[in-house]
């Protein structure tokens, strides 16, 4: 648990930081009995950023989200949302934050409109403003045509959009979205991504966890990779690739393939490995040392007659696999 002494010195600093930082975690520990789910995560997310939280199952992502959503009573360290202490000012944190959990909990006895009115009242939106606010969020989430539909009868994608509409009712500054694309079909997933982009343009700070790593790559300005309760990497995608020395894989087809030519290719600066496959060579390249254009020129200089030059897209899966080593709980 955070104590008065822990946070006393930091509070004015935090209040200053609250101006810039949407989320601030310092040495966060969450334990369930003897099991430590989160082990000293420290993190700062500036306002207006879309931050991706990646990690295998049981890595501690949901526990961190629960702390930020004021749903975790016992934790150690400090957690601030928009400069507000999660432990001391939970009610105020709830006013500036919207949380979508990783499951679809909906009231089956309500229509979508009633559902939103219910939560608008729970968020204490003044009764006179409710109708306008609900119309706005229904339009934003493209749910207006489903307003009178029973919540129970909505598709999974629609339910997820409704959940997003719910957390926008009180116009929060920070959105915490735990696996929002989980279980959605490709169309619903693309629609959700577009919706999140719209929210990003509105200046909301979005913290999102997902297993669909390619999606986070397209959406997030920064990512954090969590494993076994620890933040193992954090930064922009390019920074993480550079730090991990993730090698780019390039597939080439050569008309004049020979052992001697293969040796010459290996000697090109930046080439780590050349693997001979059935119809091609797979070159592993340190891209921080040699760019793709330089490699192409080097291959031509080495005398290769190229019929195919196909660099593989550098992806987050590679970074994720490299960092996490599949150590799930």
């Amino acid at each position: 648990m955070s104590t008065a002494d822990d946070s006393a010195g930091a509070t004015p600093v935090q209040q200053q930081a609250g101006g810039r930082m949407a989320i601030s975690l310092r040495n966060l520990w969450v334990s369930y009995g003897n099991f430590d789910a989160v082990k000293g995560i420290s993190l700062e997310i500036p306002r207006g950023e879309v931050f991706g939280f990646i990690g295998p199952n049981g890595a501690g992502k949901s526990s961190t989200f629960r702390v930020l959503a004021t749903l975790q009573r016992k934790f150690r360290g400090q957690a601030y949302v928009c400069g507000l202490d999660v432990l001391r000012q939970p009610q105020q944190v709830r006013d500036v934050m919207g949380f979508v959990p990783d499951f679809f909990g909906v009231y089956e006895d309500l229509t979508a409109l009633e559902y939103l009115h219910f939560f608008a009242a729970a968020y204490k939106v003044p009764a006179t403003r409710r109708k306008g606010v609900i119309d706005d969020v229904l339009t934003l989430t493209d749910m207006s045509h489903k307003a009178e539909s029973p919540v129970d009868g909505l598709s999974r994608g629609m339910k997820q959009r409704l959940a997003l509409a719910r957390v926008l009712l009180h116009d929060p500054q920070v959105l915490l979205l735990d696996e929002p694309s989980s279980g959605l079909d490709p169309r619903a997933r693309i629609e959700m991504r577009e919706l999140l982009k719209a929210l990003k343009e509105m200046g909301k700070t979005i913290v999102i966890s997902s297993h669909i790593l390619s999606e986070l790559g397209q959406l997030c300005t920064r990512i954090g990779i969590v494993e076994l309760g620890q933040l193992v990497a954090e930064g922009s995608l390019q920074e993480i690739y550079r730090r991990l020395q993730v090698m780019r894989l390039i597939h080439i087809r050569v008309e004049n393939a020979s052992a001697e030519l293969e040796q010459r290719v290996r000697e090109i600066p930046g080439v780590a490995k050349v693997e001979t496959q059935v119809d091609r060579w797979a070159i592993s390249l340190h891209e921080d040392q040699t760019s793709l254009a330089e490699l192409h020129a080097g291959l031509v200089d080495a005398g290769t007659r190229l019929t195919m030059f196909q660099p593989e897209a550098m992806d987050m899966e590679t970074a994720f696999m490299k960092l996490t080593e599949g150590r799930t709980i």
Partner: peptide
Amino acid sequence: TRETLDALLSTSIT
């Protein structure tokens, strides 16, 4: 059981 509590508890209701 219906997984609606977390959504309710993250609102401003005390």
